[in-house]
Simulated scan of single mutants.
Amino acid sequence: MIKLDKNESPFELPKILKKEILKSFLKIEWRRYPKEEVEVKELISDYSKSEPEGIAVGNGSNELIQAIFLGFLKKGKKVLIPEPCFPIYPWIASLLNLKIIQTPLDSEFRYDIDDLIKKAKKEKPSLIVLLSPHNPCGCEIPEDAFFKILALKDSHILIDEAYYEFSGKSFKDFLGNHKKLIILRTFSKAFSIAGLRAGYILGSPEIIKIVENSKPPFSVNSFTINALKLLLKNRDYVKKFVEKIKEEREKLFTDLRKIGSIKPFPSSGNFILFKINKEDSSKVYEEMKKRGILLRNFDSPRLRDCLRVTVGSEKENKKFIKELKEVFNEFKKH
């Protein structure tokens, strides 16, 4: 089965790095609780060009999202999120009995900044959640619009930059002058370690303290901490992987545009959302699954006629396009 449904990296870690991680793990004491992530924070500081005291590390970005919600939002408080959105946000908001305010993306799945600003001023949410690049749609927040968002003084602003490496654009440099801004990132995508569960946030020392007090102690295990130390010291592979994925993304977008029944949307992530114009997207999903290719389908009303494909390896992408064309050719015969 070719898995193109979860935005995972198509590339496995180099074997030499895997061996180094396993070798180093044998040297630490497994009976002890994980040590503090001081060295990891220093290495993330070097990678992100941020101060160590402005960094918190978590057991995947999902844990950090939960910690942010727990730290800054009380029952009944408002959170503004885009629609559609990465489903973990409305899920956690519902669990915590928060009031969800939605700002829909426009017809081309881009941010509607006017609607966002209007609702933020009216509702005064405690937290505004934005994703750039957006998952599952791939759009980015325009920098000129971001200045308007930063002017919303009533709200903390969380920018999810899980796919930052694939866009090369970040709002990190605004942190110094905006104490309510939080940047969230993950090691799952560009670093190819989704299975190890590691993410981090960037923010003011005050924000970091609240987040770290809102998550369980020792949540990042010793193996992951050990792996992060080695990978952050030997991160040349990340740039190579990212450049290859970006190259394949552009080829995949071009190939999708050539299929008449499909409209792909521009993406700055490691995935592409595409709309199916003449067929039922669920039928396309099931037919592709029968052919050994998993895609992401959606329950959201806005995305019912859409599927999302992760950018795979060159071989996987060629197989995906070939099978997708055959599926549509089969539909035409009936």
Rank of each mutant, 00 (worst) to 15 (best):
K244T: 11
K244V: 04
K244E: 13
I245G: 04
I245F: 06
I245L: 10
E247R: 02
E247F: 08
E247V: 01
E247T: 10
E247Q: 09
E248I: 04
E248A: 04
R249K: 12
E250W: 07
K251D: 02
K251A: 04
L252I: 05
L252M: 07
L252G: 03
T254N: 14
T254K: 15
D255Q: 14
L256I: 09
R257N: 15
R257E: 15
K258N: 15
K258R: 15
K258L: 15
I259Y: 09
I259S: 08
S261L: 00
I262H: 07
I262A: 04
K263A: 08
K263H: 09
K263C: 07
P264M: 03
F265W: 10
F265D: 04
F265K: 06
P266S: 09
S267R: 06
G269Q: 07
I272P: 00
I272R: 05
I272M: 05
I272K: 03
L273M: 10
L273Y: 07
L273V: 10
F274R: 05
K275Y: 14
K275C: 11
I276C: 08
I276N: 10
N277L: 13
N277R: 03
K278T: 14
K278A: 03
K278V: 13
K278M: 06
K278L: 10
E279K: 10
E279W: 02
D280H: 05
S281P: 06
S281C: 02
S281A: 15
S281T: 03
S282I: 00
S282D: 07
S282P: 00
K283I: 09
K283R: 09
K283P: 00
K283Y: 03
V284Y: 05
